[in-house]
């Protein structure tokens, strides 16, 4: 697999091979990231397509990523996901229905799981944007502190602090939810 810098340089000239490599390398993790944040497969697919369309537009305008391609893609993906989350106004029924159809054997377990997921996603949505990104990248996607730091443009120490504050905030939010 080629270095991101090299791929990016070729992509600036609309080299189709380079662009294909970029897509193959980043589309799956970006899709997964969006799905885990939103819990909606089709929507995650659409947003993933939008992320790469924006990459082409940015290159066309001469404003694409300069050096950190992954950071640029995750940032755009997160922003688009947050926008959709706001617009959707938590249409939480859809994922639940999908889950029930996918696991007809144990609908109760599926419902409980979906409810837990919805509750967690709702809690995550109350965090600050960067805390949300740390939670998803570190605890859902499993990136190392160094990788998270690259994507967020932070040092590892800062990532650890963010992670601590994000978990503490999330705990408080979940406690409030339970209390309510």
């Amino acid at each position: 697999m080629q270095d991101d810098g090299l791929l990016l340089e070729r992509a600036q000239a609309f080299d189709l091979d380079a662009l294909a490599s970029i897509y193959d390398k980043y589309a799956p993790p970006i899709y997964r990231y969006i799905f885990r944040y939103l819990g909606d497969g089709p929507l995650a697919e659409d947003i993933t397509g939008e992320v790469f369309a924006r990459l082409l537009d940015a290159i066309e305008r001469g404003k694409g990523p300069r050096d950190n391609l992954s950071a640029w893609l995750y940032r755009v993906a997160h922003n688009l996901a947050v926008d959709h989350l706001r617009q959707r106004s938590h249409a939480e029924g859809l994922p639940l229905e999908e889950g029930l159809m996918a696991a007809p054997d144990d609908p109760t377990a599926v419902v409980e799981k979906r409810l837990a997921q919805q509750r967690l996603r709702a809690a995550i949505s109350h965090l600050t944007p960067i805390q949300q990104q740390v939670i998803v990248l570190k605890f859902l996607e499993g990136f190392s502190n160094e990788e998270v730091g690259k994507i967020l443009g932070k040092r590892e120490g800062a990532v650890k602090s963010l992670q601590h504050r994000a978990l503490a905030s999330l705990r408080r939010i979940l406690q409030k939810q339970e209390g309510a």
Partner: peptide
């Protein structure tokens, strides 16, 4: 609980559109 694998996505079709 959120780490479940995402459903298979038709990223291939999106790839064609992208290119």
């Amino acid at each position: 609980v959120l780490r479940e694998p995402p459903p298979a996505a038709s990223l291939a079709a999106a790839r064609v559109r992208f290119l």
